[in-house]
Each structure stands twice: as C-alpha cells, then as structure tokens.
Computed example of a mutant assay.
Amino acid sequence: MNFEPYLVRTPQELKEASLRHGGLEVTHQLNSKEAHISASRWTRRHLIAYRLLNRREQAFLPVLRPGHDTVLGNNPRALYSGSEGELMRLPDGFFWVALSRAVRSEAPEAIRSHPQRHRSQVEHPGFMNSSLEIMGSSSPTIPSASEFGSDHSEPFGEDENDARRSKPEEVTVHLAISFLQLALHLILVQDENGQMEVRPRVERKMTLASTMDGALIAAEDDGGICLMRRVPNGWKEEHPFLALLEAKRSFRDIRFDDETNKGNPMISDETLAQYLGEAVITWRGRQDLLAHEVFLVAATSTFVRFIHFRFGTSYLEYLDAEDVATQQAIAEDPEKDTYVHMDSSEWFNLQSPEGRRNALCHILALLNWHEAHRSTSSQVVLE
C-alpha cells in the first residue's frame, strides 16, 4: 500500500480532504475517543478537524529568514573511531560525544542491504519530509550512497538509517540538547551580567488543555528552548516554550527523487498529527505565554528541522464553539481565519558543517524573532 502524505495547502484542499473522510469538518465531529486522546496518538482525522494548512517546506523558515551567518568547522577525525574520553577533551567535546553516539554503528554486521526492493521516482515532489513510521505500508527507498535532503556535505542512505533504528530515542534527544547547548552557551554571546538567559530545556513539559465537555487532553514534549530569569536564590523559568522539541530515533520511509538526486523522508499522518497536537495543546493551555505562534524543533537521528505553527485570529473561537452547528458556522465564515498555518524548513544534518550552520542560523534567528516580538516581559541581550 502506497502512503499518501498530508498535502493540504489551501482551504479548498481542506474541504476536499473533508469529503474524502466522510464529511469530517470540525473537532466536535470527532468521536469521544478521538476527542480525548493525547497528542501522541492523533491521526489524519485530527489534522482535518483541527484545520491544518501544511505549506511546502523551505530552505529557511520565512518568519526567521533574516538568520545569522556563522560557519562551523569540520568533524574531528576521532568522531567515528576515537574514545569518548578523547572526544570529550576536544573543544566543544560534549557535542562531539553526543554526535558520535548517534552516528556510530554498534553492530555493523546487522546492517542490511535490500537489492530486491523496487526504487522509483518520487510521486509528489512537493511533499513534506518527516521521520514518522508508517505501519503496514511500503514505498520506494533511497540507495545508500545517495545524498540526503538539502545537506550535500554528508551522504546518508538506507543502510545508514537501518543501522540507527536500534538506537533509543534518548540518543536523538541528547544530541539535540547538546547542539542547543553549543549554540546558546558557546556560540551565542549573552549578557553575562544580565537578568535573563536563554537555555536548552532538558526537562520534558506536559501541558493539559480542556475540551468543551470539560475533559483534559495531554501533550508532552521532549524538551525545548526556554528563557530563565535571575532571582535572589538562583534562576527561575520565565518562558519554557520559546521552542518545543520532539525527537524520533530514525526515519522509517525514505523516497528517492531522481530530479533532485536527493533522498526525502516521508512524513506520516501520525507524526505530523503529533507535532500539531503538541503545538495546539501547548498553545491552548498556555495562553498567558503564547500569542498566535508556536515553534517546534523536530529531531530525527542526526537531523533537525524547524517548524512554525501560526494560529488564525479566530482559531480559539473555533475551538471554543459549543456545538457542531456553531463550529461549522464559524469555520465557514469567510471573514474568520480558523486555520493552523504551518511552515517548515528542510532537514539539516548535524553530522555536517553545512547542516550545523543552517541549524545554528535558525536557532539564532528564532531568538531574534522572540526578542523583536516581545513574547516575554524582558528581552535577551545579544552582544
């Protein structure tokens, strides 16, 4: 069975998707089980009911386009064969250790080749990349020697991806947090005498949001980027959601595009719905901190991408509607924006200098965006 990615870009396409799913239009039409499950179990039906418009991925998130031009060096020679002690003694050693754990194969004899698999050109060159598994489906896969995504510095293919499937998700989380530490504490110059500091958030955060019937829906991230305020006895978390982090261990399905000579991981409905669910529930549950936007850092193996969710000006009114008829009327009002608008970057491989540079640009641009929009009561001072 071929998997068709969620390619709803416009309101008209959302209506067409609704018709293909029995006329599902609004959240009140979800059954009781669907309406109350946690974000980690959301499906394509949630993508439709919560009105996600998923725009094409871009090399740089439009909202963060100003960016930052910082160049990182090549990988150390000991990355693949050196001891962790050797790597730790290098400059930025904690990051190289985290990267080595993610890229080294602990059981090279288990790497499999699949010469019998059929490979064909990708059917949808505009689809969004992802890391989610598609249970019970199959699709063309990428040759081992093919280059991956937009990062041309480091080859990555099916065999490498297979070798990383056995690594626990915590390896990905550790690498992502280590890169955030590198970017925020060793590359970004913050005011050492100031009252505010941006940090990686290692702790997971669970957010609860209520539904119209009083039930609670839960969403838990894998960490993120937070803003801390200095207090007399130490530091206090001022804003825990400058960005959410969601990690996956490996890519399940990679398709090869003959036109671009790139491998593209497909995004499953379940992963995309999980991203959306975490954004919606966190936004809904923390209206005191979040206005109309949520940023999410998606990490898979050694790759990261940046996702921007923007909630329409009437989206909260849509969610708070008391019944199906009221919700449908709000959704059909052409004067109201009741959609979730999603933009995403390409995948950046932290295994390569180019990937690290692009990811770093996004992180620094993200902080500049928050400062410019005054999402907190105080600003982070960048020198």
Score class of each variant (00 low, 15 high):
Ser146Phe: 03
Leu132Phe: 08
His114Val: 09
Glu133Met: 13
Arg117Ala: 12
Gln116Phe: 09
Met128Thr: 13
Thr141Gln: 02
Ile142Ala: 14
Ser146Arg: 07
Ile111Asn: 01
Pro140Gly: 14
His152Tyr: 14
Thr141Lys: 00
Ser130Ala: 10
Met135Glu: 05
Ser130His: 04
Gly126Ile: 08
Asp151Lys: 00
Arg119Trp: 04
Ser120Gly: 12
Ser113Tyr: 11
His152Cys: 05
Pro143Lys: 03
His124Val: 14
Ser131Gly: 15
Val122Ala: 05
Ser150Met: 02
Ile142Arg: 01
Gly149Pro: 06
Ser139Met: 05
Pro125Glu: 08
His124Met: 11
Gly136Ser: 04
Ser130Gln: 05
Ser144Lys: 01
His114Phe: 12
Phe148Arg: 07
Ser150His: 01
Met128Val: 15
Ile111Lys: 02
Leu132Arg: 01
Ser138Asn: 10
Met135Asn: 12
Ile142Gln: 08
Ser150Leu: 06
Ile142Gly: 02
Ser153Cys: 03
His152Pro: 02
Ser137Glu: 13
Val122Gln: 01
His152Ile: 10
Ser146Ala: 14
Ile134Met: 13
Gln116Val: 10
Asn129His: 11
Gly149Ile: 01
Arg112Trp: 08
Ser144Ala: 10
Ile111Val: 12
Ser150Asp: 03
Ser150Thr: 05
Phe148Cys: 07
Ser138Gln: 13
Leu132Glu: 11
Gly136Val: 10
Thr141Asp: 00
Phe127Tyr: 07
Phe127Val: 14
Ser153Ala: 03
Phe127Trp: 07
Glu123Lys: 10
Leu132Thr: 04
Gln116Tyr: 09
Pro140Tyr: 07
Leu132Tyr: 09
Pro143Val: 15
His118Ser: 13
His118Pro: 02
Pro143Gly: 12
Glu123Ala: 06
His118Phe: 15
Ser150Arg: 02
Pro140Asn: 12
Met135Phe: 06
Arg119Phe: 13
Gly149Cys: 11
Pro143Tyr: 09
Gln116Trp: 12
Ser139Gln: 08
Gly126Phe: 00
Ser150Phe: 00
Glu147Ala: 01
Glu133Lys: 05
Phe127Cys: 04
Ile134Trp: 02
Ser120Asp: 04
Ser131Cys: 14
Pro125Phe: 05
Arg112Asn: 08
Met135His: 04
Pro143Leu: 14
Ser144Gly: 10
Ser146Ile: 04
Leu132Gln: 07
Ile142Cys: 14
Ser150Gly: 11
Ser150Trp: 00
Phe127Asp: 05
Ile142Met: 09
Thr141Cys: 04
His114Asp: 13
Ser138Met: 05
Val122Lys: 00
His124Ser: 12
Gly126Met: 09
Val122Asp: 00
His152Asn: 07
His124Pro: 01
His118Val: 15
